[in-house]
Design a protein around this nucleic acid. Structure first.
Lengths: 296, 296
DNA sequence: GGATTTCTCTGACTAGAGTCAGGGAATGGA
DNA sequence: TCCATTCCCTGACTCTAGTCAGAGAAATCC
C-alpha cells in the first residue's frame, strides 16, 4: 500500500508538478503567477493574500511591486482600515490571469488528449476519488477557543443551516444554551476541523455533572460532506472526553438532520428516552465510552 | 472533465508535491537527495545520471562534488572508457539513501494514517488507476532511425520475447527479413513508444509494391502492457501509412501472441489466407485504410 | 493623549537551482 | 598520426524564492 502511494507520488509529481509549474509561469515567475491568480477578479487585501499564499510580507510586497510595475495590478488603500492596502487587477492583469486560466485548461486537456474516451472517463473518476480521499486525509481537527473568528464562522454556519432545515426555523435563544463560556475549558471544549487552513466543521463537548458530557454543535460544511469528517470530529470528541474522565456521552438531535442521526447510530450511540426538554430535539442518544478504543 | 483534472492537480500538487520536497531533502538540498537516490546501490556512470535526471553537466559535477566532500559518494574511473567517471555510494551514502527511503515511506504512511481501512483501500485503488492512466497519456510515439540505440534495444527485446514464447524458439534469419534498411524511409518506417524517455515499445512499416505495406516489429514492454500502448502504436502506423498513400495494410503473426491477435481483430483487421511463407506465422491479417479516420 | 500594536514597505542577505563558456584528458575515426 | 568529438570539471553568472530586521503610517487600547 505504501509502495502504491509512493509510485503514485513519483508519477504524479513528475507529470503534474514539474510540467505545471514550468508551463504556467512562462512570462512571470511562479510567485508572480500565484499572486496574480490569488488576487482574483474582485481584488484582495494584501494581508489576506499573505495569509492565503503563506508568503513573507517583504517578499509579497516585492512581488506585488513587480506586478504593479508591469501594469497588471494597482494597489489602493482599504476603505475601512488605512493601514491595509487592497490589490486589484487592471484590465491587463485580468487578461493575464485569463491567459493563465487557459494554460491550465490546455494542460489538463493535453493530459486527456491522448486517451480514449473510455480511459478519460476512468481517469476522471479515479482522480475525483483520489482528490476527495487526500482531502479527507488532510483534514486536521484541533481544539479552538469559541471566540476565534474561524470558530465563530462555523458556529454561525451551523445556526444558519439549522434555521434553514428545521420545519419552523431555529432560534438559539429557545434552545438549550451552549455559549462561548460553556464550550471553553474547563466547562466544555470546542474542536474545529480544517481543510488546508479553511474551517470546514466543528463539534463541542459541554461537561455536565459527574462523569457525563453532552455533544453539541456538530457541523460539517456541505461542500465537504461524505469525507468522513463528521465521524472524525465525533471520534476526536470521544477521545478527549474519555481523557477527561467522562464515561457517558449524551446528545439530542432533530429528525431533519438525517445524516447526523445515522452517524450517531453507526458510531454506537443508542437511542434513549428524552433526557432534556430541548424544544428542537426529536431523538436523544447516549453512549458509554469507558474504555473507548482509539478508532482513529 | 477538464475542471476535474485541474482540481486534482491543485489538490495533489499541494499535498504530495510541496510536502514531498521539503520533507525529503532535510539535511541535503533536493538536488543532492535526487542524485543520491539515482546513483543507486550499484553505482552509476556520471553521464547516465545526467541523462536520467536531466541536469546540466556543470551542475551535476558540483552536486557530486558536495556529496564526495561529505563522504557519501566516491568517483572512480570507468573501466571501459577513461573519460567516463562512475559514482558509487560509500557505506555512509547507502545509509543516507535508506534514510531517504524511510522518509518516503513515512510520508506515504502519514497520508494513509488518518483514513479508515476502507478509505485506504479505495485510495490505493484509485491511485493505481490514476498512475496507470497518466502513464498511458504520457507515452509519446515518434519515428526513429532503426540504428538508434533505443530502437535497437526494443528490437532486441522483441526478438528475445519471440524466442521465449514461440514453441520452437525464434531465429530472425529464418523469418522474413525486416532489417534496418528496410525499416528506414523510404523503404519503411519505425516508430518508438517512450514513457518518460524510456523506450517501451515499437512498431514498423515495410512498404511493399504499389499501395501496400506490412506491419512489422509490433512490441510493447511487458511492464507497460494494458495501457493501450499497442493500440496507439498501431494507430500511429496506420495514420503514417495512410499519409504515404498506403491503402492496404497486411501483417502476419504467431498464435502464441494472443494479445496481438486480439488487438488486430479489434482494430478492424480481417483474417485472410496466408499471403506469405513466413515460417513463424499462423495468422495473416489485412485492413483497408483508404480513408482511415483519425482515431487518436 | 500617549503607548502599543498592526500593516505594509524597504534594504540587505542567503540558499538553491540552474546556465553558459571554456579547458583538459581520453577516445575514435580518417 | 592527427583531428574532431566526447566527457567531466571549473569559474563566473543569473534568477527565483525566501528570510530577517527595521521604519513609518494608521489604528487601537488604556
Amino acid at each position: 500500500m505504501v509502495a502504491q502511494v509512493r509510485r503514485f507520488n513519483r508519477v504524479v509529481t513528475q507529470h503534474v508538478g514539474a510540467l505545471n509549474e514550468r508551463y504556467l509561469a512562462r512570462a512571470h515567475s511562479l510567485g508572480e503567477a500565484r499572486v496574480l491568480w490569488e488576487i482574483g477578479a474582485e481584488g484582495c487585501d494584501v494581508r489576506s493574500l499573505r495569509d492565503r499564499l503563506g508568503l513573507d510580507s517583504g517578499y509579497l510586497s516585492r512581488l506585488l511591486g513587480a506586478l504593479v510595475a508591469n501594469g497588471l495590478v494597482t494597489l489602493g488603500p482599504n476603505d475601512s482600515d488605512g493601514r491595509v492596502r487592497t490589490a486589484r487587477l487592471t484590465p491587463q492583469g485580468l487578461t493575464e490571469r485569463s491567459v493563465l486560466d487557459e494554460r491550465s485548461d490546455a494542460l489538463a486537456e493535453s493530459l486527456l488528449a491522448s486517451l480514449r474516451p473510455e480511459q478519460r472517463e476512468r481517469l476522471c473518476t479515479a482522480m475525483g476519488e483520489v482528490e476527495r480521499l487526500i482531502s479527507a486525509a488532510t483534514v486536521a481537527i484541533t481544539p479552538i477557543d469559541p471566540s476565534d473568528p474561524q470558530a465563530q464562522q462555523c458556529l454561525r454556519a451551523y445556526f444558519t443551516e439549522l434555521n434553514r432545515r428545521f420545519d419552523r426555523g431555529f432560534d438559539p435563544s429557545l434552545s438549550i444554551s451552549a455559549d462561548d463560556d460553556e464550550l471553553r475549558p474547563p466547562a466544555g471544549l470546542l474542536v474545529l476541523a480544517r481543510l488546508r487552513g479553511k474551517p470546514i466543521g466543528c463539534g463541542a463537548l459541554k461537561f455536565t455533572h459527574g462523569q457525563g458530557a453532552d455533544v453539541k454543535r456538530m457541523w460539517v460544511a456541505e461542500s465537504e460532506r461524505g469525507l468522513g469528517v463528521g465521524r472524525r470530529i465525533l471520534t476526536e470528541l470521544e477521545q478527549r472526553a474519555a481523557a477527561s474522565g467522562v464515561v457517558t456521552l449524551r446528545l439530542e438531535t432533530n429528525k431533519t438532520l438525517v445524516e447526523a442521526v445515522s452517524l450517531y447510530r453507526s458510531a454506537g450511540y443508542a437511542e434513549v428516552p428524552a433526557f432534556s426538554d430541548e424544544p428542537y430535539a426529536h431523538h436523544w442518544f447516549e453512549k458509554h465510552i469507558v474504555d473507548a478504543s482509539p478508532a482513529t
